[in-house]
Design a protein around this nucleic acid. Sequence first.
DNA 1: CCGAATCCTGGACGATACTG
DNA 2: CAGTATCGTCCAGGATTCGG
Lengths: 141, 141
Amino acid sequence: MSPTHTDVRSLVGAALETPVPADEYDRCPVTEVMRLMSDKWTVIVLVLLGRQPYRFNELHRAIDGISQRMLTRTLRGLESAGLVLREVHPTVPPSVEYRLTPLGQSLLGPLSGLADWAVTNEAALAAGRHPVAAATSSGPH
Amino acid sequence: MSPTHTDVRSLVGAALETPVPADEYDRCPVTEVMRLMSDKWTVIVLVLLGRQPYRFNELHRAIDGISQRMLTRTLRGLESAGLVLREVHPTVPPSVEYRLTPLGQSLLGPLSGLADWAVTNEAALAAGRHPVAAATSSGPH
DNA sequence: CCGAATCCTGGACGATACTG
DNA sequence: CAGTATCGTCCAGGATTCGG
């Protein structure tokens, strides 16, 4: 198992001179995870399911603006990644429950780290570019 | 300044019953950050610039498969978010250097957390769905 | 209640050519 | 060297309809 990473060098290997091969970049686990989370609804679904299991329509009502189609697609994506478990209860009418798998739960930690950063730096981001000490060697005279 | 978040509840407020308003979700800082990072090249550019400053064509050569157009767009996006600083040196021929701002640097930490998770769970993700203790106790065969 | 099938639009992305 | 302009393709995502 990998030791703790202190940076994201896993993405680029150890290459400084070597260009990142397009193929390797495409199959990099970091890239894959970003692809998975980068659609419009996956994160919010992940967060909600992190709090409690939901039935399909509960989720549909809980997320304002999502269509049935996109909820289904989002859940399928998470399911096939092993982050969400789909449980069908053979009742009448049928009900389907979705919950996070342990793997899905474990993603909430890192995701929370990113969320924390986003909230902390919300102001700086909203400001567009923030006031950094621009250090051209010519210097502000 | 916000206290430390232990989960991503900042995204959903405190609402369990209340549906997440589409508008609020759209302007949530977490959503914005995900939007920023969710294109094909932003993450790798961020990572490379985290190691050292790059000139435009250095970056172009370092990332296999990226087009000039997309590199420009990616850098513009990062710049307008305040994560990357663009420095024009009035030499002949002109050279432009890109480096991370302190804000950009600070993003590498949380990003690294996600990368670490991705590498750690690469196997489980590659397997599609992982062998979780399924509710159906009926084993294989 | 849960979801698949179909149609449509906008934006991401790539390739190529051109410019100061 | 560091871009911009233009064109074409592909796919995420919304609306709607149908099925089990």
